[in-house]
């Protein structure tokens, strides 16, 4: 079982610093999780630490490929509002 980091990662190092298993490593274009080392923090913490500190929605997936922090869950911006804003910005 392992979590994974996908390409919305902004390389902020926060998860790297808090991983109890040293499973996270710097890579290009973004940080990655070593599936052999990742324990999903079982036995160490109640919640996986990388997903607990990550500021970017949908950047970390659980073992089933589902975003640990879904859209709107961290910024508080309703996803439809965000989509609307981006659409308007792009049309300018």
């Amino acid at each position: 079982m392992s979590l994974s980091i996908v390409d919305s990662c902004v390389n902020c190092w926060a998860c790297y610093d808090v991983c109890p298993s040293d499973a996270i490593y710097q890579s290009a274009p973004h940080f990655l999780i070593d599936a052999k080392k990742c324990t999903e923090c079982e036995g160490d913490y109640a919640h996986p630490q990388c997903a607990t500190i990550c500021p970017i929605e949908e950047a970390i997936l659980d073992a089933g490929g589902v975003a640990m922090n879904p859209p709107g869950s961290l910024t508080g911006i309703p996803p439809e509002k965000m989509a609307e804003a981006m659409l308007e910005f792009q049309s300018r």
Partner: peptide
């Protein structure tokens, strides 16, 4: 210092 321990509503961590 890229990592942060809080989220502020005036900040967007995706920006560069």
């Amino acid at each position: 210092a890229p990592a942060c321990n809080i989220q502020c509503h005036y900040c967007n961590r995706k920006y560069d």
